[in-house]
Design a protein around this nucleic acid. Sequence first.
DNA 1: TATGAATGAGGGTTCATTCAT
DNA 2: TATGAATGAACCCTCATTCAT
Lengths: 186, 186, 186, 186
Amino acid sequence: MSKRDDILQATLELIVEHGLQSVSFTKIFAKAGVGAGTIYNYFSSKEELVNTVYQETADLLENHIMANHDPESSIEVQLKSFIRNMAKFALQYPKQLELISACKHSPYVSAILRQRTTPSVEITMRLIAEAQAQGIMSNIDPRVAVHLSSGAILAVVQASISGYFSLDDVIIEQVIEACWKAFAQD
Amino acid sequence: MSKRDDILQATLELIVEHGLQSVSFTKIFAKAGVGAGTIYNYFSSKEELVNTVYQETADLLENHIMANHDPESSIEVQLKSFIRNMAKFALQYPKQLELISACKHSPYVSAILRQRTTPSVEITMRLIAEAQAQGIMSNIDPRVAVHLSSGAILAVVQASISGYFSLDDVIIEQVIEACWKAFAQD
Amino acid sequence: MSKRDDILQATLELIVEHGLQSVSFTKIFAKAGVGAGTIYNYFSSKEELVNTVYQETADLLENHIMANHDPESSIEVQLKSFIRNMAKFALQYPKQLELISACKHSPYVSAILRQRTTPSVEITMRLIAEAQAQGIMSNIDPRVAVHLSSGAILAVVQASISGYFSLDDVIIEQVIEACWKAFAQD
Amino acid sequence: MSKRDDILQATLELIVEHGLQSVSFTKIFAKAGVGAGTIYNYFSSKEELVNTVYQETADLLENHIMANHDPESSIEVQLKSFIRNMAKFALQYPKQLELISACKHSPYVSAILRQRTTPSVEITMRLIAEAQAQGIMSNIDPRVAVHLSSGAILAVVQASISGYFSLDDVIIEQVIEACWKAFAQD
DNA sequence: TATGAATGAGGGTTCATTCAT
DNA sequence: TATGAATGAACCCTCATTCAT
């Protein structure tokens, strides 16, 4: 494992364990087992380091969301797959999800990075528009629908991570169904 | 206005203007126009100060959510009112919502405080259970339903605050309707 | 003696002993016997501190140069008095002279401060112009004459401070005479 | 061009461009296009490197001062030639002069190196003693005379470099004449 | 000889907190 | 109660230097 990976890993864990605000270089160095100056061989500043951690984690999430994506299947199947994959990711990588959630509204992570549109979001918006054209989905702004459903699923998995309740496949399917029904045209 | 209020007001404004991370005592003193030591007559530490600000803001939110609450009206009306009030609050006090959102992931704010159950949440859970008993709502865990819908509405208003789209009464009603349909029994 | 004075004094001594470049806050704190943050109660940055030390020292020099200045006496007497006073200052405050000399060409001290024209310089230039009008001084650019003679006297006293030779009143008068003769009209 | 020369050249340029203080090994490596460790094959430390650059520049100055030196010509011509050559050097190599000037007060450059007596200085002292023996120069200590005149000329050229006035051949000759008259016996 | 990743002491600066007034 | 000068640990970052390759 390279020094760079050590640093990224240590940063990720520290952000997740103690929050973005309290992450200091001193702690990162101690946890990663590298010298104070080493970081600057890989990252030009603390901000860039945090941004990189965020970006790589966001990419990991995106890859999971897009897993097994089949553009040939029905709109409903595709959209539900996205939601299901996000939930699965959250269960498999709770730390990473926590990180994304923590960074989502932090000025420390550049707005550009935070507001990047990902393929999955673009596809989702396109599918929603298509579904609306076909009359199987109510005429809500696709961007609103995306934030609504991703916010819903994130809140649920975060609550389960926080220990409010235990999440299993049955509940996940209930949540997916709820999201679908939210927009489905009668 | 007492010194204590000066300090709280200055803290809220600073958090809201420059983000929780960059708020320092030095800046609070300057803005509040009090001496450096004065704060310790009212708050034992920075953590306690931030917790107080958070709590007061959370109370403000709770008051708005409970506004015009009529226990005599139908379950649907009561639940939709909660969601509508949350959205209205977000539009009226975007910075305060941001504060609450920022504190959700901050170690500064004690877990106990963050996870407080409020009357509105308790009422919501009771109403959901009732609705399920009446067969007008699907049998999803009430705690899941609460996090799902509050997460959904928060994500939408935050997205609008971040500038992804503009929120108006029409969209709010669409969102409320979506949340309702998500759980409604066919 | 106030903390501010402690800091200024320590800075002056450190610059003179180890050179402007190697002066660090750590050393200043240790020498002045103050805490690390104390400096920022008086100076907004290291640069401002150094500039202040320079300015106060330059003012001290200026005051010595202008000592016993009598505008009623002859041009020759006035000019020679300036030169003599500069030499006396250098003997009395060798550290301060070293400081001025070290800062004179350092980018650390603001150009504005370094290039300030002082009353003594202005008076000197006026006297030279007058002397040239009266035909008792050769027609050299007054600014050149000022730098030439002050550079000459500074170099001599620095050399004596460095131990090349010992400076006494006799030599000082010889130097003054040399400076005068340099510009005197035959 | 050898690596050693690359390093020396890069160092000189950096000192000249950004000042002695802000020159770091990192910048030297980048500019010279060599690896970080390479320098230690040629110079045991940064101090030695800077000393070498200083020495080579000082040698360049000495060579210019001694240019066209004719031991057979009159004392006056020889002395004036030294001064003229120093001024010409300053005009041709302002940055190198600044380097020498900056190093005069830098602890990086060893005292031994800084206080080296050069042939031109030795010759000058001998010529002054001779002139005094012949009664054409006043009986000032030769060491004082050397520092006085070299200090004078340096101050003038530095002032011109700093932009106080523009130096041309006419002014240079005036300065030379002033220096001469300063010591000439009536 | 040449490299450059790694080092960690030290740089200037900010901070929450204390305490004499 | 109110002050704000003083503190020094901790902050992010740069540096000259080392050493395995």
